[in-house]
Design a protein around this nucleic acid. Structure first.
Lengths: 107, 107
DNA sequence: GTACTAAGAAATTCTTAGCAG
DNA sequence: CTGCTAAGAATTTCTTAGTAC
């Protein structure tokens, strides 16, 4: 998981490290230490916990594992679109891919 | 990490569990056991290893952590688009979002 | 209240040594 | 050759008990 994404999303939600940890189901006694270790990149949370965190912060869980900025942005937008708009974007992307860098086409 | 995505991408690349592990830099002696444990969901690989695996399988690393099928498909397509086409899709998505489920707009 | 950390306790993964198809 | 597994070794995370602002 990318520590800076966790921090970014937590701050956007206006939660303290401890509060977020508690909401995610961590033992209140260790919520502060653990969330801090994750956010500083000291330790890595398991996927199951990140799924809970992503629900609380209303982000797709994969967003926390995304390196490319544009790909991250697209995931966030896609997550917030209606079902119809999702289909629309997916269809557009598929069309572009079909015409994308034709290895040696034009013929 | 979602075990079934690892299996899917590995098979698509026509690699054995052991070969993929070796290519990812795992000690050849334990590559088979470890990759099998990951693919069966017995143990979880760390993010750094998954980054190497994603490079070998030419998929975005976040794809392995993506639950929603359509979101996974979009990530894969986006990964394979040219820079210009990426910008185009991102712009379309942003436009759709701006008009998406206006909480109480039309006014 | 919030962010953060050291260090031992506890839990996890990794390696070895295999078996089965 | 490939997929797979048990179990101890090795490594990691988690908890506790704090500090500093």
């Amino acid at each position: 998981m990318l520590a800076h994404r966790l921090k970014q999303a937590r701050l956007k939600a206006n939660l303290s490290q401890e509060k977020l940890g508690k909401l995610a189901g961590i033992d209140p006694m260790s919520a502060s230490a653990r969330m801090n270790q994750y956010e500083r990149g000291k330790h890595a949370p398991d996927y199951q916990l990140m799924c809970k965190v992503s629900e609380i912060l209303t982000m797709p869980v994969s967003w926390f594992y995304t390196q490319d900025e544009d790909a991250a942005k697209l995931q966030e937008i896609f997550f917030n679109l209606s079902a119809d708009n999702r289909k629309s974007i997916l269809a557009s992307a598929e069309t572009l891919l079909a015409r994308n860098t034709p290895v040696a086409a034009t013929e």
